[in-house]
């Protein structure tokens, strides 16, 4: 009798569990459906497409070419003759890779430093709410408007050059028309735009730094700088890790600022991976090659994500 009751209870539990699972799935379904239709399927198609030659038109015009697209974008023939330097200085893909990495390596730490500095400044001061809103504003403003405004500010006779000249530095050129400064103008705009967003994340993280630790440090005679270095910074480690990973991924996908401010120029000095993909796919209508370049981007982003998943435990404070 007792056994029967137990069985019944277990069965009821099982049914309830199943029901719960079903409900959970039904909540997940719309999101997953959207993901599948708009992300998963296109990604799988792009992987396949990178092995085909397809210059648009009917699907029947697809022609299987194996790894030929990859050989073309890496310019294997010339690179094997002339070495890696040739790849990074002459081949479009090499240049785009070099530029994108350069942009990422500068932008990520710079944004983190600015965001963290802002967060620390605005953590306690009076009127912080107003300033927080001010620094967050670029993040919600229209990218096109931001880029156009910055283009004007960075012109030859623009306010920024006037300021620089007043400091005694001789720079009399539009930033976006200079091969070195064009990249820096893109970095500048990106940092300026994104620091407010990451500041908010840091502000939240700062609330989580235990007061006791700070008090203990004060009692031990640590000054403000030492407190920051040995208490605050380690406490923020998981946030910094998360922020860097997110930013690296978004940096590799940079497109809008470049498209509006420099169009990849002058020459190829700000050509990025995504602008290169756009150019191949939509101006030259070579979807196969464009997909092959996308695969390079996918591999890079995937590697970063794997590193994130692997090291998440190590960097979390538990």
């Amino acid at each position: 009798m007792k056994q029967g009751e137990q069985k019944l209870a277990r069965a009821r539990m099982g049914r309830m569990e199943r029901k719960k699972t079903l409900i959970a799935y039904s909540f997940l379904a719309p999101n997953f459906l959207g993901f599948a239709i708009f992300t998963l399927v296109p990604v799988v198609c792009a992987i396949a497409l990178s092995l085909f030659e397809w210059n648009g038109g009917d699907i029947s015009r697809l022609r299987f070419v194996g790894f030929e697209n990859y050989a073309t974008i890496f310019n294997v023939k010339k690179v094997s003759q002339n070495g890696l330097a040739y790849f990074f200085n002459r081949v479009d893909l090499g240049i785009a890779l070099k530029n994108t990495v350069y942009y990422t390596v500068i932008t990520v730490p710079l944004t983190i430093i600015c965001a963290l500095a802002l967060a620390l400044l605005l953590n306690k001061i009076r009127g912080a709410v107003v300033f927080r809103a001010v620094f967050f504003f670029p993040y919600v403003a229209s990218m096109v408007a931001i880029c156009v405004c910055w283009s004007f500010m960075l012109m030859k006779d623009g306010p920024i050059n006037h300021f620089i000249m007043a400091l005694g530095i001789d720079f009399n050129k539009s930033w976006t028309a200079d091969t070195t400064m064009a990249m820096w103008s893109i970095i500048l705009v990106s940092v300026w735009r994104n620091m407010g967003y990451y500041m908010v994340i840091y502000l939240a993280a700062l609330q989580g730094v235990p007061k006791e630790l700070m008090e203990a440090a004060t009692v031990d005679g640590a000054n403000k700088w030492k407190q920051f270095l040995h208490v605050t910074l380690p406490q923020l480690r998981p946030t910094t890790f998360f922020v860097s990973i997110m930013m690296i991924i978004s940096c590799f996908k940079i497109y809008d600022v470049v498209a509006i401010m420099t169009e990849g120029g002058p020459g190829r000095s700000t050509k990025m991976l995504v602008t290169y993909i756009y150019d191949e796919a939509f101006t030259k209508v070579r979807y196969g090659q464009a997909s092959a370049i996308s695969m390079i981007l996918l591999i890079i982003v995937l590697l970063v994500t794997i590193i994130q998943f692997r090291s998440e435990k190590k960097f979390s404070n538990d």
């Binding site: 200079d178 002058p266 020459g267 150019d279 209508v285």
Partner: peptide
């Protein structure tokens, strides 16, 4: 011709901006 256009335009922008 599409590739040539890209190349000529890229170098054009370099010459015009006096980078080369």
């Amino acid at each position: 011709v599409a590739d040539i256009k890209t190349i000529v335009n890229e170098e054009h922008s370099m010459i015009m901006a006096r980078e080369i």
